[in-house]
Design a protein around this nucleic acid. Structure first.
Lengths: 240, 240
DNA sequence: TCGTTTGAACTTGTATGATAACCTGACACG
DNA sequence: CGTGTCAGGTTATCATACAAGTTCAAACGA
């Protein structure tokens, strides 16, 4: 067996990241209250024993998370509104959190399918239909159809006409679907699995075409749960 | 009427933010391909006409978004995996995106209620029950019950035993629910509205207690949609 | 007394140069 | 051919200086 675990070694965190972690912890533990002024960059540099540049980068990270606000000439403050951005770093590798992530993905996307069925324009339906056809063609051509599959799901998300579904689903798709696809390719290309998958796609499409939100939601949920099950089956075989 | 809109004036973006914006745009437009090496910090500083400090902070932001990877001694590269973090800055003030945000919130939380019903332990049910009782007590005491309301929904999220639902729901709760609550307080404290809300809460609780996922999902959806409707009604009156 | 102005002191933002840590590739050496 | 060494380039960090903005109180004038 080859050494497939030849991943780059994990480096120690850079200083600004580390300082940002400490500062964030201090804020979340209430060491600095919302709206309160933080120590000056100079002072922080002294307490942590690093230069002001490092402090600046660390604070800059917290600012981008909306946790801290700074004003030239005044100082730096804990955002009284609380963090205004949600940050999700999906660690696909972590086998423990993967089931939860997939469950979340299924929930969001099945709801999206429901909204899409309710709200899709005829143009959007045509778009989805076209994607489905492209997917069929890809299957007939023995190609992997990965790009087409992604496009199909994207088209459904677009039909929700909700920027949050589009953005969030897009992200989860990109992160999780890669896993599912490789699983599908490696398990069984020949034994009709692709046709089953395509049938699931067609069920979703039909429901959206009929503007049947309940059915669309259900079909999407079924499809994604099946995909997750296929992934689990593949993984179980890989790491005995 | 008081000047309640005493928000700090909008300043022009700081340099690092601006540079980060440009760099991100350049990457997303394919000007730098995934895996490709970016120009050196020195070179970037020259092209944008800013100092290396500014470039460093800008790149640091992109790094925290997982869009760029930098290695000491080697250079900076566009992350070939694509961005690994999802970033959502919910702009509550933007009236255009608010309906979409609420729809998203409803979708996620109603699904969460379903999972909670399916999976809650007896201890978690007890927790939820306790929150509901506390809410009743708050209503009887003429207190606003905001804290209790938040706790109630938090307890439901916790019962999903899914970190993503907990984290994401928590975030959306914190951002959106504030709006809904103020609306509720300002519209009608006397005309039995609080009792209707409490009945909706009780419906959710009952379904979770009965481990009826469908009913829980439905009750939560109903409750949140009603809340959104109440918010709309309030807003319509405010800004004629 | 009251309001205004002025300026010093402080804070964040930016620029600059230097040094340390690290990587790469070429070259000499065995 | 394999190996060690070294020069050059790159990022990481530090130190310092100055620019830009804020605060606050004292000085000033009516």
């Amino acid at each position: 067996m080859a050494v497939s675990e030849a991943r780059p070694i994990k480096r120690p965190e850079a200083l600004p990241t580390e300082v940002a972690r400490l500062l964030r912890a201090a804020i979340e533990q209430g060491q600095f209250r919302p709206g309160e002024q933080l120590p000056t960059q100079q002072a922080l540099g002294d307490t942590y024993g690093v230069s002001r540049s490092v402090i600046r980068e660390a604070v800059s990270l917290l600012k981008s998370d909306g946790l801290v606000i700074s004003q030239q000439g005044r100082g730096q403050f804990v955002n009284p509104e609380g963090s205004s951005v949600f940050r999700l770093d999906a660690d696909i590798e972590d086998a423990n959190s993967l089931p939860s992530l997939i469950e979340f993905l299924v929930s969001v996307e099945s709801q999206a399918a429901g909204h899409a069925a309710r709200r899709r324009t005829t143009a959007q339906l045509a778009e989805i239909t076209q994607c489905l056809d492209a997917l069929s063609a890809a299957i007939a051509n023995q190609s992997d159809g990965i790009a087409e599959d992604l496009q199909f799901h994207r088209a459904i998300l677009a039909a929700t006409q909700n920027e949050y579904f589009i953005g969030f689903g897009d992200f989860l798709e990109a992160r999780v679907r890669g896993l599912i696809r490789t699983a599908r390719m490696n398990t069984a290309r020949q034994d009709g699995l692709v046709y089953q998958v395509q049938q699931e796609h067609e069920a979703i499409h039909a429901a959206i075409a009929a503007q049947d939100a309940e059915a669309a939601q259900h079909a999407a949920q079924q499809h994604l749960q099946n995909a997750a099950a296929r992934l689990r089956g593949y993984r179980a075989n890989q790491t005995p």
